[in-house]
């Protein structure tokens, strides 16, 4: 019984490591794509031995990270053999959202839904009107509806408190970062305030604090 409890208590660390590994995989996939694109643009034919070695190293680390995620997920599943019903639905919802987000991101990246000049979703570059409408509807209608359901039915009071504290700290972060950035811009030290960058900083702060209060 108590071993299972320890597992339950340390799931937060597992989720943290899984997220870091996932982030690492995204970075490495980007690096592999960039490496191959650069090579193709050079037009220097097939890869030489050093090229293959670099590619193999990237792929090995990516696979190692994927394996680590799988191992951590297995450990979590073992500790999840008996979980409260609310948490079970919560976990399914969370995994579903991750898979949906990942698959959508992958489809957008693979189908080349961005203009050639674009670095990706997180940039200020132009995007096709259709993609802009799809993303706006997703973030303006679908995600709020899911979020409402999430908070109404799946979140318990401890997590609600974690969300509240995260939102409070994020609000303070916004209050202080925005004017500091503005002053530094006026002083010619930083570029002009980027609203989307501020948005992501705020979200990131809320996410970190929520995670800390919920799991650690």
């Amino acid at each position: 019984m108590f071993n299972a409890d320890e597992d339950a208590g340390s799931n937060g660390k597992r989720i943290l490591w899984m997220s870091l590994c996932g982030f690492g995989i995204i970075m490495l996939l980007g690096a592999i794509t960039g490496f191959l694109s650069a090579h193709m643009e050079e037009g220097s034919g097939p890869l030489n031995l050093a090229g293959y070695a670099i590619l193999a190293a990237f792929i090995c680390v990516t696979l190692a990270l994927a394996f680590a995620i799988w191992r951590l997920f297995r450990q979590m599943k073992r500790s999840d053999q008996k979980v409260p019903q609310r948490e079970k639905i919560y976990n399914r919802f969370l995994i579903g959202s991750f898979i949906f987000g990942g698959v959508t991101g992958l489809i957008l990246a693979l189908t080349g839904s961005f203009d050639e000049t674009e670095a990706g979703l997180i940039s200020n570059d132009a995007m096709s009107p259709m993609l802009a409408i799809i993303l706006s509807v997703a973030l303006g209608v679908i995600v709020p509806a899911i979020t409402f359901y999430w908070h109404k039915n799946l979140v318990d009071e401890q997590e609600e408190a974690a969300y509240r504290f995260g939102a409070l700290i994020a609000m303070y972060a916004f209050w202080f970062i925005a004017p500091v950035w503005w002053f530094l811009w006026r002083g010619g030290i930083l570029p002009a305030i980027d609203g989307i960058a501020l948005y992501f900083i705020t979200i990131f702060v809320a996410l970190i604090v929520w995670f800390w209060k919920k799991y650690l």
Binding site: M1, A4, D5, A8, G9, N11, G12, K82, V83, P84, Q85, R86, E87, Y90, D156, E157, Q158, E159, K214, Y215
Partner: peptide, 16 residues
């Protein structure tokens, strides 16, 4: 009871 059992009785997560 495990934490999961108590969570089930109280309708909260094991983290709670």
């Amino acid at each position: 009871w495990s934490q999961a059992d108590l969570g089930e009785h109280l309708d909260v997560s094991r983290q709670a």
